[in-house]
C-alpha cells in the first residue's frame, strides 16, 4: 500500500489521547525503572557496609586470658591481628563508648562503676561468613561476643529484593496497561474506518498491508508519547536521586546537581522506555488489526 494516508488514520488514530495516555504510562514506568535500579544500588551499598562491619565486645577486659599470660583484651587483640579477613581492628576509646551508651546510661557511663566490656571495631574482608570468629575468640577470652553485620545485610537484601520485585511488577503492569490502551485505540480506529478498510480489503489489500498502516501510525504516536512521559519524569527522578544520595553513598549533595544526580545506569536505561513502548505499540496494533481483519471474508 502506498505511504499516503489512504485509510484516513490521522483522524482515526488521534494524535492527542493515545500519546497522552502512553505518556502517563511512561512517566510511571520511568519511576518504576528508577525504583528498580535505585533499590539495587542501595542494596549493594548497604550490604557492603553492613556485612563488612564487626563489633567485638570483650567482658572483663583486664582479667587474665585463657593462657594466663596476658589480659583478656590483649589476648583478643593479638588473636584478631593473626586472623585472616579481619582488617583494621581498633579499640574504641572511652569517649566513643560514652557516646554509644549515652542514650541509655547518661553522658559519662564509664564513671558509674559498671563493669563495662571493651569494644573493638574492625572490618571483615573475608570471603566467607565471619560466624566462626566468635568461637575462635571465645577460646582465648571466654564470653567474647562478635556482632557481625551479616544478619542485617541479609535483612537489607531481603527488603531491597522485595522492593526490586515490586518495581518489576509495576513495570509489567504499566506495560500491560499500555498494551491495553493501544489495543483499545486501534479498535476504535478500526470501528471508525470500518467502511474504508472493508473497501480497501475488497480491492485486494493484504492483511499485512492494512495492519502495517495501523502499526506505523500507532508506533509513532506511542513512541512520541513515551518519549514525552520519560522526559517529564526526569526532574522528578533527579529530585529523588538527590534525596537518596546520602543513603547510596554517591557523594551527591541533597538538592544539588539537577539532572546530573541521575546515575549512569538510569541514563543508559531510560532511552529504552520509548523504544519498548514503540515495540508494544507495534505488536499490539498488529495483533489487534489482524484479528479484526479475520472477521472480513
Amino acid at each position: 500500500m502506498a505511504k499516503r494516508d489512504d485509510l484516513g488514520l490521522r483522524e482515526a488514530l488521534s494524535d492527542r489521547l493515545l500519546p497522552m495516555l502512553v505518556a502517563a504510562m511512561s512517566f510511571l514506568a520511568a519511576l518504576g525503572l528508577a525504583g528498580t535500579l535505585a533499590s539495587a544500588s542501595l542494596a549493594h551499598a548497604w550490604q557492603n557496609e553492613a556485612s563488612a562491619t564487626l563489633t567485638i565486645q570483650v567482658p572483663q577486659p583486664d582479667d587474665p586470658g585463657a593462657t594466663g599470660k596476658t589480659t583478656r583484651l590483649a589476648a583478643v587483640q593479638a588473636a584478631l591481628a593473626q586472623m585472616p579477613g579481619v582488617e583494621n581492628p581498633r579499640l574504641m576509646s572511652q569517649d566513643e563508648e560514652n557516646k554509644l551508651l549515652a542514650p541509655w546510661l547518661g553522658e559519662d557511663a564509664t564513671q558509674l562503676g559498671l563493669d563495662l566490656p571493651s569494644v573493638i571495631s574492625a572490618r571483615w574482608a573475608g570471603a566467607s561468613s565471619p560466624d566462626a570468629l566468635g568461637q575462635s575468640l571465645g577460646k582465648v577470652a571466654p564470653g567474647t561476643l562478635v556482632d557481625a553485620g551479616a544478619i542485617w545485610a541479609a535483612r537489607v537484601a531481603a527488603l531491597t529484593g522485595s522492593l526490586q520485585d515490586c518495581a518489576a511488577v509495576v513495570l509489567l503492569i504499566v506495560a500491560a496497561v499500555a498494551a491495553a490502551v493501544v489495543a483499545v485505540a486501534a479498535r476504535a480506529g478500526l470501528a471508525q474506518r470500518r467502511d474504508t478498510i472493508t473497501i480497501v480489503h475488497g480491492l485486494g489489500a493484504l492483511d499485512g498491508d492494512i495492519a502495517a498502516r495501523f502499526s506505523s501510525r500507532a508506533t509513532v504516536l506511542v513512541a512520541a508519547g513515551a518519549a514525552g512521559g520519560t522526559i517529564a519524569a526526569l526532574p522528578v527522578l533527579a529530585w529523588l536521586a538527590a534525596l537518596a544520595a546520602p543513603f547510596a553513598g554517591t557523594g551527591i549533595q541533597p538538592g544539588g546537581g539537577g539532572l546530573f544526580n541521575l546515575p549512569l545506569p538510569l541514563w543508559g536505561t531510560l532511552p529504552i522506555l520509548p523504544l519498548a513502548a514503540a515495540g508494544i505499540g507495534w505488536v499490539t496494533s498488529q495483533i489487534t488489526v489482524r484479528r479484526w481483519l479475520r472477521g472480513l471474508p
Partner: peptide, 9 residues
C-alpha cells in the same frame, strides 16, 4: 487470505 487478496486485485 493472501491468495484471496491477490485474486481480488
Amino acid at each position: 487470505r493472501r491468495e484471496a487478496a491477490l485474486l481480488r486485485r
